[in-house]
Amino acid sequence: MNDEESCSQAESYWKANVWLLIKLLAVWGFVSFGCSIILVDYLDQFSFFGFKLGFWFSQQGAILVFICLIFLYTKRMNTLDRKFTSRESKRDSEEQF
């Protein structure tokens, strides 16, 4: 296998990984620090299932979003893992023949 190529492969895998983390953590920060704390009084003017919206975010909504974020991450990473490992093994097998 070409060393340089595998190096850039690893780098683009890592970059894709970090980029995904940044996106997910931005949502995480917005929902927890944003909706549940900084914007809470503003959101409280809206009503949601009988709750003030800001209050609901801080005691229910944020937790539900956190769960979605982890499962989304798991799914995206599995796709990413498959994409990069299959590329690698494909190249490996090509080299063998």
Binding site: L24, L25, W28, F55, S58, Q59, A62, I63, L69
Partner: peptide, 21 residues
């Protein structure tokens, strides 16, 4: 009351950091 949300947010939000980082 609402100030108690820090525990709910803190003790669940940490799992996102744990899982991702």
């Amino acid at each position: 009351g609402r100030d108690g949300s820090v525990y709910l947010l803190g003790w669940t939000g940490g799992y996102v950091l744990l899982a991702l980082l």
